[in-house]
């Protein structure tokens, strides 16, 4: 099956490496980054592209754009892995809309379009008889969407709680373990590359809230936006507060919570018993879903990273191939 990729940053490179190393039956026929592109209907030599990106910072020829890639039509699935824009979702929203309109499947790791335009994009996909999949937008490598939609099909999901942001979880782990102050722990997270230069989205709970919006709209059809989430971040936390929690044999984690029946969507630091299954360490993510038939299920795994996100993207691509492409 042929795939075209928009975005060739850490996630894009992770996908390209996996496709070239593993025998997945996938052929990359087009790639565009923000400044260049390459299109070859017979399949691109991915090792060349990775090497060129590493040495020149460009994946292909300057002047070939994302729009050119979309219009080339030499692909079955468009893999959209450009950076998230949580305000307008552009330019990713435009790319995804074009590809779906042209009757191509789309797999994305981009939270913006899915959080802001879920209903419209899904309607478009259905009308063109193609798939839009977005496993990588929530909890990186954890197959959460797949578990909720397919593994737990037929269950009523009554509640969902989880650690959705690895950066915050790392900061809280370090504040607890080493008694670091919030700003010291944040600085350390930045040095290790776990936090962005502008950590606002992570530490203020916005990133976690966007993931709740995606789940609320896609799993329960609640039709909510970021404004509907009650958000408190971890930037006001003190080392003393963590020590006080410790006295109760507890700790503090940034928890995202959805109770669909009460329309509760909330991101806030919460006190949890230290042996609670959501108390995971470092940059891990964890999600517990409560269901009527299956009871409680907890998934724990890596929420970010090049290869980890590639895992979710590739699973979506192969799902589309196995369920929709090869059958037709």
């Amino acid at each position: 099956m042929r795939i075209a990729m928009l975005g060739f940053g850490s996630v894009g490179r992770g996908i390209a490496e996996a496709v070239s190393e593993k025998d997945l039956g996938l052929s990359i026929t087009a790639v565009a980054d923000s400044r260049s592109g390459i299109i070859d209907a017979d399949g691109i030599d991915i090792r060349d592209v990775l090497e060129r990106k590493r040495t020149t910072g460009l994946c292909g020829t300057p002047g070939i754009t994302a729009e050119d890639v979309i219009e080339s039509g030499v692909y079955d699935v468009l893999v959209e892995v450009t950076p998230t824009n949580a305000d307008s979702a552009e330019p990713a929203l435009g790319y995804i809309t074009c590809a779906l309109t042209a009757g191509r499947h789309v797999v994305t790791s981009n939270k913006g379009p899915v959080a802001l335009r879920y209903d419209a994009l899904m309607q478009l996909a259905v009308s063109r008889n193609v798939q839009l999949r977005y496993e990588a937008t929530v909890c990186g490598a954890i197959p959460l969407i797949q578990a909720l939609e397919i593994g737990l099909a037929g269950n009523t999901i009554t509640a969902l709680n989880g650690v959705f942001n690895g950066t915050c979880n790392y900061i809280l782990t370090r504040m607890t373990d080493e008694g670091l102050s919030y700003s010291q722990a944040l600085l350390e997270a930045r040095e290790l590359g776990y936090a962005e230069a502008d950590p606002t989205y992570d530490v203020k709970g916005i990133d976690a809230a966007i993931k709740l919006v995606i789940l609320a709209n896609s799993i329960w059809g609640l039709n909510v936006s970021l404004d509907d989430v009650d958000i408190t971040g971890i930037d006001g936390l003190t080392t003393d507060a963590l020590a006080l929690a410790e006295d109760l044999d507890c700790t503090i984690r940034l928890i995202g919570e959805i109770i669909p029946e009460k329309r509760i969507l909330k991101v806030s630091p919460r006190v949890l018993s230290k042996d609670h299954s959501l108390v995971v360490r470092d940059t891990l993510n964890a999600v517990t879903v409560e269901t009527d038939m299956a009871g409680e299920i907890t998934l724990i795994g890596r929420g970010a990273g090049s290869r980890e996100t590639a895992s979710a993207i590739i699973a979506d691509i192969l799902f589309i191939r196995d369920c929709y492409v090869e059958r037709t």
């Binding site: 709680n161 408190t232 006001g236 936390l237 507060a241 929690a245 507890c250 503090i252 928890i255 919570e257 806030s268 630091p269 919460r270 006190v271 949890l272 018993s273 609670h276 959501l278």
Partner: peptide, 10 residues
């Protein structure tokens, strides 16, 4: 003031 509540009753 910031209130940090328990996730579950304990």
């Amino acid at each position: 003031l910031l209130v940090i509540e328990p996730l579950e009753e304990y």
